[in-house]
């Protein structure tokens, strides 16, 4: 049983690491779709203040 527990812990840790790496690789649309010629000031209607698209949550936002 000990190895199973160990496996679960390892899985969760690795998943956490993957989550972090994946969210770091994630870009808001205003960055992904603007070229070197543009300096964009993001606005957040329709996508919520923290770009998650979730209008309620106030999670870590990519403001400005």
């Amino acid at each position: 049983m000990k190895t199973i527990i160990l496996a679960i812990v390892a899985a969760v840790l690795l998943a956490g690491a993957a989550a972090y790496l994946l969210s770091v690789n994630q870009k808001p649309a205003y960055q992904a779709f603007s070229t070197t010629g543009a300096r964009v000031t993001p606005t957040d209607n329709l996508v919520g203040p923290n770009w998650s698209g979730d209008p309620q949550g106030r999670g870590a936002g990519h403001r400005g």
């Binding site: 603007s34 070229t35 010629g37 543009a38």
Partner: peptide, 8 residues
């Protein structure tokens, strides 16, 4: 407008 033509 700028979003539609971002590069010269």
């Amino acid at each position: 407008l700028a979003e539609l033509q971002q590069d010269m």
